[in-house]
Design a protein around this nucleic acid. Structure first.
Lengths: 216, 216
DNA sequence: CATTAATTACACAGATCGGTGTAATCAAGT
DNA sequence: ACTTGATTACACCGATCTGTGTAATTAATG
């Protein structure tokens, strides 16, 4: 499918909803706001999505991306996750994991949202696990769980602190866990001591990319 | 101060707001709902809290508890955090970290909420750091950060999965990080392999306690 | 008993919420 | 030129939101 050409109206609605939902919260954004942002009538929005709930579902479904496959060796893929994470943190507009946020704000009643969130988290865990199995790690299941914990912990910390170095701290921890599991982990320790520049207003030419999608 | 005696009206309002805000989300709960739950008039509520925002602030302030001090050795205190975390997860009605949730649902604009969330997270990190310094850990700052990442990661994972064993997985990771930093960590490895009973509907006589408060 | 303070019921304001109904308008395709 | 489908403007619905004004009622204190 050619990625150019003018986007469908449905796509425009969805991507605008995505932006607003993610940035300001699902409950905080009304359908009127979304329609106004695009400059369309509310009727048009409802012609493409029969209800806000379905729009929310589409939003989360769109965030459910596959973890990137690459030819690189498993260790690099695993550690690379934390590098992508850090870039995501540094990118303007990062606001944590959309699935965790959705569960947090939609309460425990909403079962469908929780289900997709669980599916996403588990898919990431399995991605780690399969790579760990390639590395002949004994307890691939448990270590994979621990890696997802590191990822989500870094995300939560960055969400409140706005400190991208949390990704690096998590990466260092991941290295220790990997080494402890008998995995040969690549050379330099990347950074030492307390990550400098905590709570950074340090804007390194941040790009507005949306890499990582569901995070992470 | 004697903890018994009948609670103040303000206290009743606050504790009810706490329960509802935490359980169902701040944005999801209206002041009418809170007043109705207690059985008081909305006017009375506004006589004690001039606005919902101040009630929210009081809610978060109430969740800002000090990490429990004890005479136990630092390592046990650190690892004990994860045990308390697991009990919190198992307790009925656990719904993640109130500060992270508040930041997640109130969006990036609300500065006051983010500030108190940062303060809380940092206080927990410093608590870890001071204990680590007692253990003569070289990079106490960095390791403390990593421990908070583990805590928040376990919380996020449990929030979506409802799996209290995430706390144990985080604890095992913490042990590895501590050992790697030269800390002598206590004997048995507590559990091995994949934590059984993932996504547990397994109700072990869960208590309704609210220990941990702000988590963790 | 009289005073005072808290709480009550209740109506109401203005905004926003998700969602619908309708008729006019616009843009293609044939 | 005619038809078809999408989009528009716009009014409207009932519900809910935060917050206020007011006068009556209740409970404790002197």
């Amino acid at each position: 499918m050619p990625p150019d050409e003018k986007p469908t109206m449905k796509q425009r609605i969805l991507e605008t909803a995505d932006l607003l939902f993610y940035q300001r919260g699902i409950r905080a954004i009304g359908v009127d706001t979304i329609a106004a942002e695009i400059g369309i009538s509310k009727r048009t929005l409802y012609n493409h999505f029969p209800s806000k709930d379905e729009l929310i579902a589409a939003y989360l479904a769109g965030r459910f991306t596959k973890a990137p496959a690459s030819g690189k060796p498993p260790v690099e893929q695993i550690l690379g996750t934390f590098d992508r994470l850090e870039r995501g943190f540094a990118a303007k507009g990062f606001r944590g994991c959309p699935f965790v946020n959705a569960v947090a704000e939609l309460g425990s009643e909403d079962q469908s949202v929780r289900k997709i969130a669980i599916a996403f988290k588990e898919s990431r865990r399995l991605w780690f696990r399969d790579l760990l199995k390639q590395l002949a790690v004994a307890d691939a299941e448990g270590l994979a769980t621990q890696l997802t914990i590191l990822v989500d912990g870094a995300i939560a910390q960055d969400l409140v602190r706005n400190d991208p170095s949390m990704a690096r701290a998590a990466k260092e921890a991941a290295k220790v866990l990997l080494a402890n599991a008998g995995v040969e982990v690549g050379g330099e320790k990347s950074s030492r001591g307390t990550p400098k520049g905590r709570n950074a207003a340090s804007s390194h030419t941040t790009v507005v990319t949306r890499e990582g999608e569901g995070f992470a």
